[in-house]
Nucleic acid binder design. Structure first.
Lengths: 334, 334
DNA sequence: CACAAATTTGAATGCGCATTCACGCAGTGC
DNA sequence: GCACTGCGTGAATGCGCATTCAAATTTGTG
């Protein structure tokens, strides 16, 4: 058997020191003389020794693994995960990835996640029952919701201010003199979907506008395109559509142009939400609300680390403002 | 301290059995009477016990964790990772995600990966020195390269047949009577980049065509767009461009339409590679080579599992044919 | 130079679990 | 009635490492 795993004992024997000393060298810890440190490192090098961090986690009670629960059908999330993973890596932590059905309750998979003794948990694109939240609480696993929040449960959340974002869009469309408004909402009952719609419709009502149209999609190109088709084939078709996310807006734009033969923005204005990279491409050039993703990521990690250090800390809800990005998919007030 | 971790000993005490028995129940193992099994499960339920899989990995020598090394700037990879993660989850294994700079040598991060005692390693969008490959070999960690291969190293690889794909494109463009061909290649010296270019240019030469144009990009929209601009602003501008990947093709199409005022495919044909979902959207409608991603994913997992079971198995290189998908971004032979 | 203090090192222990071994007990066949 | 299986269970041990405690060594100080 050539592939016998090399342990700290092997290194110790080879370097002529005790296993404790090897451990000290690799924990970047205190009080090892330069001479022995060098001997140990040399021996480790020769043997190809890598410390077993899983074994280490047993005694330290820290795995340096962060769980991320997500689904990737909406291209918003890969960018988030990429950023999170990179930043975590720079902090010496790794990402254990769990994939769930879009907007499925995360409860099914949570027991599995907890078995891996992740130091903390980031949940995107899924929600968490308060029962499971308290299970995490009991086990001392901090949870941060990303782009979601849950008022009942004792978990932190980092979110774009979706209500204000919806209001900004309502203002933009009314100011530009649109007469017939519509919203393609998200189907799942998430805080994000609700808030974007709420901000939009509240502001419309405040400004005396009623009877906007409404369709649903599920944050995917195809269902967005279909929803837009239904709207645009009505006799009283809208002259402006606010889509719950950019990916839906792409579908809506293609529906308008290629399914219905309409011009954008002359015949119909389309507004999205997120500001995906693709939204800036000239083929779409989507007017949208930009989520402050970098700040959201930083804040998420900050909350995470704080609660890893002090698990007693009270959960926080952080709302960050989005920014209106004006491009050419919507007619503007002159 | 309320958040004392619950261990199998706690469950054992509560259920009035030994720790061994608890362990047997949760290893879904042999020979536990129904009565005691029920008692143990009840006790576990009441205490909220979750077995610690990291501790388990110490004795079983299996972590059930699969490392995936990737970078996500090219949207091809999120889809792959999503699929891999889902399938792994269904097999009871989890994904530990490592992010690297595009096409960076993966050597820097590999020691870190090995510290997590992953059962196996999938590497996409990065290459592996043969020295590191043998380090994995020594430690008994099977490696599968996805969409890359390395002839020297003793690692398995699953790959689209990029050479044949390049040939298909060359045939398509010549058959349609294009007179002035160009290739936007990938900058990094990866097998994928090389093979796509090789298949394309070999076939051109075979058919007596020489002096095609060449530019480089790095599998990103922006650099693809810039490369296309350089080509299309030449006095002898090409009437067909083969792009190393779809994301580059999107940039090239926008360059043609919006930077150079050209019509597609009347003035210039654009062909991509990968068949991203976006390639089917009417705004782009990219003629492309579809990678058989589902079969590639299945094959990757099959190789992985085989080598986890039998680490002595010889490494394999699997080449799967791509499929030409004709859309409207390229003029076709009638 | 003597003695206290600081530094370096090793032996022993435990983290949470799987697994081996041995033991007790019911059931089988004679 | 007895030896013999075979199943269900517990005690003991080890996985690879960090950490505590005590011993050994070096350093600093009067």
């Amino acid at each position: 058997m050539p592939s016998k795993t090399i342990t700290s004992v092997d290194v110790a024997r080879r370097a002529g020191v005790s296993q404790s000393t090897v451990s000290r060298v690799f924990s970047a810890e205190n009080h090892v003389s330069e001479a022995t440190r060098a001997r140990v490192l040399a021996a480790a090098q020769e043997l190809g020794y890598q410390p077993n961090v899983l074994a280490r986690s047993l005694t330290t009670q820290q795995s340096n693994i962060i769980g991320i629960v997500t689904h990737i059908s909406n291209p918003f999330y890969p960018y988030i995960i990429e950023k999170l993973t990179r930043r975590l890596q720079a902090m010496g932590r790794q990402t254990l990835l769990f994939s769930v059905e879009p907007d499925q309750e995360v409860d099914d998979i949570l027991p599995l996640v907890l078995q891996y003794r992740v130091d903390a948990l980031i949940i995107t694109s899924a929600s968490l029952s308060s029962e499971m939240a308290s299970q995490c609480e009991r086990q001392g696993t901090p949870v941060v919701l990303f782009n979601r929040y849950a008022l009942g449960a004792k978990v932190s959340a980092v979110c774009c201010d979706n209500i204000e974002g919806g209001r900004l869009v309502a203002n933009l469309l009314l100011d530009a003199g649109h007469k017939r408004l519509a919203h393609i909402a998200g189907r799942a009952p998430t805080s994000t979907n609700r808030d974007r719609e709420k901000g939009f419709s509240d502001r419309l009502r405040e400004r005396g506008y009623a009877n906007w149209l409404r369709e649903e999609s599920d944050h995917a190109y195809q269902t967005g395109r279909e929803a837009a088709c239904r709207l645009l084939q009505r006799p009283d078709r809208p002259d402006a559509i606010f889509c719950v996310s950019d990916i839906v807006a792409f579908g809506a734009i293609d529906a308008a142009r290629y399914d219905c033969g309409l011009r954008i923005p002359e015949d119909v204005s389309i507004v999205g939400f997120d500001d995906l990279p693709t939204a800036a491409w000239p083929a779409y050039s989507v007017t949208t609300i930009r989520e402050p993703v970098n700040r959201m990521v930083e804040l998420t990690l900050k909350l995470l680390v704080e609660r890893i250090i002090n698990p007693q800390a009270e959960p926080v809800l952080e709302l960050l403002p989005g920014q209106l990005i004006k491009r050419t998919s919507a007619r503007l007030a002159e």
